[in-house]
Nucleic acid binder design. Structure first.
Lengths: 186, 186, 186, 186
DNA sequence: AATGAATGAGGATTCATTCAT
DNA sequence: GATGAATGAATCCTCATTCAT
């Protein structure tokens, strides 16, 4: 049964299962056994691939961040004007690839976990820094206080994430952010 | 040593210890034993007073919500104009009584936990509803789309909370929100 | 509130509550707190009167045995012929005072507990000895093998107790025993 | 050390250890840890195989019942006449395989536990029903009141069990039952 | 590569019991 | 006499992790 070259598939399945499990069960009740079962393999194999539960969850987080990062880069490449760059960032944040229920839940839990010092915090701060820098870069030609506006845009995006995680957020959060930007630049 | 009438003090000490422990250790690693030790008593006594870990954490959440609610009510009572009402709500959100490090961390964890159905979710949704209704009520005389603006203000507040929980948020988040409101009403 | 001379009532209430609790919850789940609550007082008071849980349960057992003993003595006094003596013993065993549901359940649990060396076993063996000796004494004028018949009568009584404890025993167990005796003496 | 296919052995060892532990310690003081130690493994492994203490004890009970059932079936198969059938049932009840000290003690505790509604009670009632039906079937050709006699035989068997559990029962309980039957059929 | 077997280290919870009042 | 307060010790159970196969 064991075929060679399964490693990437196995790792991927585990990462996806981890995200789904966080969403379904809550970070507090996530166990290696449950993740492994969801991914269709034994807990021992999960350990074989990731070495520890922490590293597995970290891989899940990296996956979420990298999906987001890829989305941003792709859209930024296509953007021509500063305004388009802004829209690209906002659109990436709410793109279906990382605004699915599972992923939003995972984000929220990463935030909670990032309270403690460690890799999660480091990664999340890195994400924050990049988001801010992207925003500031796009805003610089449009306003003379790019930092302040970037801050509020970033906070707004995070707030909408949080609310989405609980259900009951606005239907079109991206529109809400664009509105905010428009008014601020007016 | 055992004097009568200790219940309120003990419960209070446990609630405070629970909040501190969530902030210090992260919700995932909070144990009854740690909370009890921090509150200066045995785990058995903690159970005696709260019956279960869940009920203890729920009491902590209720405490946080009630502190916030009291802050809002107190400031709303003093407000005269719609604009003052708005400022009152914003100020309450960032008042020192519930913007301390511990409390902000607790909020974040409550959000993460509220993903799962249960009392936490119910309480948090109730808080959301009240906040929105307070905002809409204050905004109605000031704009013709009070719901949309309320939504964005609420999201902004939550986003600033999240960022505060991680450190590195803006120095004066209330100012940022007031700025947002001003621009939106202009 | 505390009146003097309450001791006998208190002790009695606890003994009765213990028996009821054994029947209702099963010996494994009997706790001092539950017994005390059922008897309308605090666990601490129960300890005050009995010193320990074991001693309390032992008192309950002694109560059951003494009720049975009193019943036997009363009926034996009234009996005139050997045959009447036999009937007296059988009737006492199934008299309502110790064939109530609670009491039967308690008996069964005492048997289970008497496996271990200790006071319970001592008391139960004493009961066995007395029962056998009473039976043998009554049987001696009626048969030349009184010991064997006494043995089978005693076993039959115990068996009927066991079955009564589970429900579904015969309606009139005493009649069944009398039948057995009659046939054996015929 | 871990070889594959250990499950049956482990389960068996635990069941046997549970029976021995009930006999040695009394059902009230049986702990998973003690059973596991006696069976030569960790408590965690015991849980791994049985899921819970209750299910483990239930398995022990099922084992005892099935040993008895097998004994009865084997002897009934060999029996030719109604009288032989009766003797087969009685002999099975006191066969060494389920009249050993351990097993008798376990029976007694199952009885005590069967007071509470649950699987134990269900199984024990099933055993009662089968025993009665076997007896009635064997008695029908021999007497015109098979039910009544079956009842008394069953009660006698149970009573002898109870007494055996405490030590001090008759040396040859089966003979006593056969005697009872003989006289009743005379 | 893959897994069943196995466990040590906890974690929530319960409870008999003690003590000051 | 009576009780609320308090806890140490134990119990069941879970889980990440390791290991032989």
């Amino acid at each position: 049964m064991p075929r060679t070259g399964m490693e990437p598939q196995r790792r991927n399945a585990l990462v996806r299962a981890a995200i789904a499990e966080i969403a379904a069960t809550g970070a507090a009740d996530v166990t290696v056994a449950r993740i492994a079962r969801r991914a269709g393999m034994s807990p021992a194999l999960a350990h074989h691939y990731f070495g520890s539960k922490d590293r597995m969850l970290l891989a899940a987080m990296r996956h979420v961040l990298s999906v987001y990062g890829a989305e941003v880069r792709a859209r930024l490449t296509a953007a021509r004007t500063p305004r388009e760059r802004l829209d690209a960032i906002v659109a990436a944040s709410f793109a279906s690839s990382n605004f699915e229920d599972d992923v939003v839940a995972a984000w929220l839990n990463f935030y909670a976990q990032a309270r403690q010092p460690g890799e999660t915090r480091r990664l999340l701060r890195l994400y924050h820094k990049r988001l801010r820098s992207n925003l500031v870069h796009a805003l610089r030609p449009l306003t003379d206080r790019p930092e302040a506006l970037a801050e509020s845009i970033a906070a707004l995006i995070d707030g909408l994430y949080v609310r989405a995680a609980l259900g009951g957020g606005p239907t079109d959060p991206a529109a809400l952010v664009r509105d905010h930007i428009e008014r601020a630049l007016a």
